[in-house]
C-alpha cells in the first residue's frame, strides 16, 4: 500500500452561533493516494465544500475544526499556525475554485500572479520563474502563452480563465489539488476540455485530486473513487464504478434513481421524499432516517452509523438488507 497523500481522520467542523452549535462536517474520514482522483458528491449544504476548505485551512470564522486530524504526506496540518499553513497552500495543496473570475486578481496580469506563486514557493531566480510561468500556461493549453502572459484576467474567456486558475494551482508543483466545482460555471463543451486537462495533468505528474462537485456525470467520467456526503456526514465511499452502478446506502440509491438517464425518455423519475434537514434541526441517529424507506427503529436512536457499519463502504445499519 502506497502512503496516501492526504489522510483525513474523523474530521469535525463546527460553527458556534448565539443560540446553537452547528456541525456542517461531522466525523469524516478518507484517504487520497498519489495520482488518485477522489470525487466528493452531495447536494447543496451536504458539507462538501466545507470539507475542502477545512483541509486547506480556509474556513471563514466562526467556523473552525473542532476534532479529528488532517495529515498531508505524513505531516499533521490541521493544527499548524497560520504562517506555516500559508506556505502549505500552493506548495503542498493547490486549489481550484468554482468561479474563475473571482479567483484571479483583476488588477494584475496573469503572468505576475503565476510568477509570484512560483517564486514564493520554489527556490528559483526571477528569470527562471518567468520561464516557468510561460511553461505552466503552455501546459494547460493556452495558445500563444509567451504572448498572453502579460494579459489581464478580463481578456480571457471563461474556459481560458479556468485554465489559468489550474496553471496557478499547479505551478508550485503540489502533491494534491482540491478542485471545488471546477466546471460548474462553464458550458458543456468547455467543461469537457477542462476535465480532459485535469485528468491528463493528474496522470502525467502523479498529482492527487479531490474533486468536489454535484454532477454525477462528471464524477463517473473522472474519479477513481467517490465519497457521497449527506448532512455533513460521509454516507458512502468506494470505487466509482461500484458506488454508481450498485449503490449500497439508501441515499445513494435514491440519488442515482432520481438522476435522469440519457438513455431513457419519459420514464417517471424516482423521487426521494422531503429535503435534506437543516443543520440546526438534525434528526437523532442517522441523518437520512426520516426520508429513508427502509428505516427501522434503531436508525432513529443514539449516534448515527459511520462507514464501519457497512464494511467500510456505506454508513448504514442495514447495508446488506438494502443491497440484497
Amino acid at each position: 500500500m502506497v502512503e496516501p497523500v492526504l489522510s483525513v481522520r474523523n474530521l469535525q467542523v463546527e460553527i458556534p452561533l448565539r443560540k446553537s452549535l452547528l456541525r456542517p462536517v461531522d466525523n469524516v474520514s478518507f484517504d487520497i493516494a498519489p495520482g488518485e482522483i477522489l470525487g466528493v458528491v452531495g447536494e447543496s449544504g451536504a458539507g462538501k465544500s466545507m470539507t475542502g476548505n477545512a483541509i486547506i485551512g480556509l474556513l471563514d470564522r466562526p467556523a473552525h475544526i473542532c476534532g479529528g486530524e488532517v495529515w498531508l504526506r505524513g505531516q499533521r496540518i490541521d493544527n499548524l499556525p497560520p504562517e506555516a499553513m500559508r506556505r502549505i497552500r500552493g506548495k503542498g495543496i493547490g486549489m481550484v475554485f468554482q468561479d474563475p473570475l473571482t479567483s484571479l486578481n483583476p488588477l494584475l496580469p496573469i503572468g505576475a500572479q503565476l510568477r509570484e506563486t512560483i517564486s514564493e514557493h520554489l527556490p528559483v531566480s526571477n528569470d527562471e520563474a518567468a520561464a516557468r510561468a510561460i511553461a505552466a500556461l503552455e501546459e494547460v493549453g493556452i495558445p500563444g502563452a509567451a504572448r498572453r502572459v502579460d494579459a489581464y484576467p478580463h481578456e480571457f474567456s471563461g474556459g481560458m480563465r479556468q485554465r489559468v486558475v489550474i496553471a496557478l494551482a499547479l505551478c508550485a508543483e503540489p502533491g494534491l489539488v482540491i478542485a471545488d466545482e471546477p466546471t460548474t460555471a462553464l458550458d458543456v463543451s468547455v467543461q469537457a476540455q477542462i476535465i480532459v486537462l485535469l485528468k491528463r495533468l493528474c496522470r502525467e505528474r502523479g498529482t492527487a485530486i479531490m474533486l468536489v462537485t454535484h454532477d454525477m456525470g462528471v464524477i463517473a467520467e473522472t474519479a477513481d473513487r467517490v465519497a457521497v456526503m449527506y448532512a455533513g456526514r460521509l454516507v458512502e465511499l468506494g470505487p466509482v464504478r461500484e458506488v454508481l452502478s450498485a449503490p449500497c446506502h439508501p441515499y445513494t440509491i435514491g440519488l442515482m434513481a432520481s438522476t435522469p438517464l440519457a438513455s431513457q425518455n419519459r420514464k417517471r423519475l424516482n423521487q426521494i421524499p422531503g429535503a435534506m434537514p437543516r443543520l440546526d434541526a438534525l434528526p437523532p441517529g442517522c441523518a437520512f432516517q426520516p426520508r429513508c424507506t427502509s428505516a427501522r427503529e434503531v436508525c432513529g436512536q443514539g449516534v448515527g452509523p459511520d462507514l464501519t457499519a457497512g464494511d467500510g463502504r456505506a454508513a448504514c445499519w442495514f447495508t446488506q438488507a438494502v443491497s440484497a
Binding site: A192, Q193, I195, L197, A220, E221, L244, S245, T259, L261
Partner: peptide, 13 residues
C-alpha cells in the same frame, strides 16, 4: 456531455 455510465471515458475534447 458527461455520461453516468461513462466510467473512465476518454473523450476527444
Amino acid at each position: 456531455a458527461p455520461k453516468l455510465d461513462g466510467f473512465g471515458r476518454e473523450v476527444e475534447p
